[in-house]
């Protein structure tokens, strides 16, 4: 119960700060919007091409925009030593990980929720359906799980903005591939049975990333 209470305290602290500044949401939203516009022009999307490229464009957009959130969320803690304030508290260090991870999940999901209708209009596709929303959620969980850990690692380096994508994108590849394949299958109207292995892979990587990050975080923040 204490674990949950403290995890939620960390999430709520980030939500309060974001509600006040709207710094991260607006940055992610504008960046994601610009990416969609650039992709739509650069691919010269005609009706027959849309379904082929839309899943990739969608997940590249979410991954790039999400990286902004990951970078900012952790560097804000490490700037001026605020992470010490959390590390000094009488709680397992994994509480900090889950608090920051849930915050990242929440903010990235909020951006995705705003972007999906825009995406639907720009690409003339119906993306607001349960199977697709589940895919987005599962993909975002994996992204936030490993991204929070790697952002903590990168935040301690001088070139943190460069370091995070360099560390994150190779590792997150299985999640992105599974999510893209699932998205494509859903858009093509394939039955769930033929997509089940991608779904299992996505859930599997979510669990692995969460477990590894949970175990590694304590070691990472220990001086």
């Amino acid at each position: 119960m204490q674990f949950l209470n403290k995890t939620l305290a960390i999430v709520w602290k980030d939500v309060l700060a974001e509600l006040r500044t709207k710094e991260m949401f607006s940055s992610m939203f504008v960046f994601a919007l610009l990416l969609v516009v650039i992709f739509s022009f650069s691919f010269d999307l005609r009706v027959e091409k849309v379904a082929e490229v839309a899943p990739g464009v969608l997940w590249v957009t979410f991954a790039f925009a999400g990286t902004l959130q990951l970078n900012r969320a952790l560097s804000a803690e490490i700037e001026e030593g605020r992470l010490d304030g959390l590390l000094l508290a009488p709680m397992e260090r994994s509480t900090i990980y889950f608090g920051k991870m849930l915050g990242n999940l929440l903010f990235i999901s909020a951006t995705e929720a705003v972007m999906l209708p825009i995406f639907s209009v720009v690409f003339n596709l119906n993306l607001i359906r349960p199977a697709f929303l589940l895919t987005v959620f599962l993909g975002t969980v994996g992204f936030a799980a490993v991204g929070t850990l790697l952002a903590t690692m990168a935040a301690n380096t001088r070139a943190r903005e460069v370091m995070l994508p360099v560390l994150l994108f190779p590792i997150i590849l299985p999640v992105v591939i599974s999510a893209v394949k699932l998205t494509a299958g859903i858009l093509d109207g394939l039955p769930w049975a033929s997509l089940a292995h991608w779904l299992r892979l996505l859930i599997g990587f979510d669990i692995i990333f969460l477990a590894v990050s949970y175990m590694a975080f304590d070691y990472l923040v220990q001086g």
């Binding site: 403290k6 700060a17 605020r82």
Partner: peptide, 23 residues
Amino acid sequence: SHQPLIYSDLTVEENLHFYGRIY
């Protein structure tokens, strides 16, 4: 420490509430 370990986007009261909850 010389760094106050407080959150500049939270109010004085919200900072203390936050630390109170995690303690």
